[in-house]
Design a protein around this nucleic acid. Structure first.
Lengths: 184, 184, 184, 184
DNA sequence: ATCTAATCGAGACGGTACGTCGCGTCTTGTT
DNA sequence: AACAAGACGCGACGTACCGTCTCGATTAGAT
């Protein structure tokens, strides 16, 4: 995809028209700005790749964390998705319509679902009720994204697991003996 | 700076020449690729902004962590630095000479210094010797970068502190009573 | 009129539809080619401007010549008519249906009427019977048209008169003493 | 040539660039208006076809007239030249730079040379000194152009000769016995 | 001191893209 | 069945910026 390859600037009306086998005029008729073009492309990509949010309600906390991280890692294994995210980062939170599209439509729902699950676990007394679910996600998602986007790989194959363990430990979640925390 | 504003594509020989008050010919003579141009700019920026690595050797672990995170947070408060990092992320680890420049010359030294400090703390028995210092840094740096680049702000002002607490907790570092971990 | 302003190319179905307050579809239904459109316009213009051929039968030759030239000059005084003729010239004799329309329907009748009058004068012995009426008209009409279309004005106000004198002289028509021939 | 085929509108920067094997940018660099483009083309055509003005000084009047008409007829035998002239007529005297180019640079010199010859003949007492050379040329050139451009052919092969005879007769030039005047 | 060679600027050129307009064609829905 | 509305491909508009290349002019060093 053009955006994933070269960012916003690469999504030219010319190229889009050429790849769509349409005339530039037709593209201009449907989208009036480059941003609208990109936003549409993002939504199309999402519609195609989105498998829907899992129902996390009845699963144990550990499993939810696993799924959360596993999902993220799996998504970022795809080179295309990685490039896509890269360009979204390049735009940053001030990217106008594009940012709105992905932050609000793609990331926020999952983030909210995760937070809800955490709150639930807190109500059940499983983890420290003073925890901020957002911070937990920052650590988990941040570590993954940071490694994969900036360095290109994980420090260890077991890294995702280790991130989860660390967060659970910090959350006061009772660990099984013999568990590894941030261990190599 | 051109690169921070528009990424690699924005660093054109034309613009560079114009800003330098020179002719394109002159620029071409000194740098033969766009990448070389960017790499030079990055080094220049680094030379100007780098205050040198602190001497962490004799400080307690907690302070080192504080400094590490504080440094990072301070650096990313500058809009320019944030934009710069954004574009570096956009390039990713396959960005050729540019990536080499910043990953190897700018990030790696600090990362290594930090790792050394952790190893030292492990030798002293302060924290779990099985810890992988890289994973600790992934969590700390990742959480910060992820929030600031992608969302544009921190979840809480106290977030940096909370990240450190979480990592220390997970590392088995003995905490003072009454400390907050990942709390709001 | 569109044709007078920009020639055949300017008579677009689009413009015609817009000016007629109709849809392109409607225009296409009635005329299938651009030429048909122009031809129709020409006929409409002729129907509106044509005052009918004068009855030259009973007038003296000199008067007929006067009328012929005067008519032509008057018609070409109108800027619109001049532009129209310009575009007809631009098309030339190979202009298909358009040329047919104006050459056959607009010019030929007058030309024939003039020729008939000349033949009549020849039968009466007024002028040289060997004269070709067509050549006379070429000289008269040609001089006028050439000046007005190409140069934009007459060399002299008396030019039309002078043309007639010259042709009559060449035709052996007995001139009054003191007449001017091709004089300034 | 584009102009001869479709008039001013057909001389598009796009087409010119394509035919010249150049980029549109380059064309825009050299000519800033469509008119300048056409004017250049006209001059190029003239430079290529112009054989220079004959030296009419020492020739008898009849021969000069013959040459004048013969030249014009020969030039208009070429279909291309005829189309070119057609488009010039279509533009008319208000065609801006284009009109200037051909009226002033191409037609006027020859016209002036002809006039000078006539004046000379008048000084020699060969023809009526009251004659206006411009009117003579209007008749000669007009008749030719009018026939060829509007009707597409001459009324007779002998037409050019007949035009000359008529003009000479009207000019009071002593004719040989047996000459034909406007005869078929 | 002069000649030579490197360096420089200015600028032309081919690309690519921009955003717009008008046109002829074709499809779709509405009287 | 005639119609309006409108989408579409095409060509052209005039502009901008970029990388490449070719020129003269200037400058410096070497003879």
């Amino acid at each position: 995809m053009l955006f994933a390859d070269g960012g916003r600037a690469a999504v030219s009306f010319d190229q889009v028209a050429r790849r769509a086998g349409a005339s530039r005029t037709a593209i201009y008729r449907r989208w009036d700005t480059r941003e609208a073009l990109v936003a549409s492309a993002l939504r199309a990509f999402r519609a195609e790749s989105e498998t829907g949010l899992e129902d996390w309600a009845d699963r144990p906390l550990e499993e939810v964390l696993d799924l959360f991280v596993e999902r993220a890692a799996a998504a970022l294994e795809d080179q295309f998705a990685r490039d896509l995210l890269r360009q979204l980062v390049a735009l940053g939170p001030d990217g106008g319509a594009i940012t709105q599209t992905y932050l609000v439509e793609m990331f926020a729902p999952r983030r909210d679902a995760f937070s809800a699950k955490i709150r639930e676990a807190q109500d059940d007394g499983q983890i420290d009720p003073a925890l901020d679910p957002d911070l937990m996600q920052d650590l988990l998602a941040g570590a993954l994204i940071h490694r994969l986007l900036l360095w290109g790989d994980l420090a260890t194959d077991a890294a995702p697991k280790a991130y989860i363990e660390a967060v659970l430990e910090a959350a006061g979640f009772p660990r099984r003996p013999g568990h590894k925390t941030l261990g190599a």
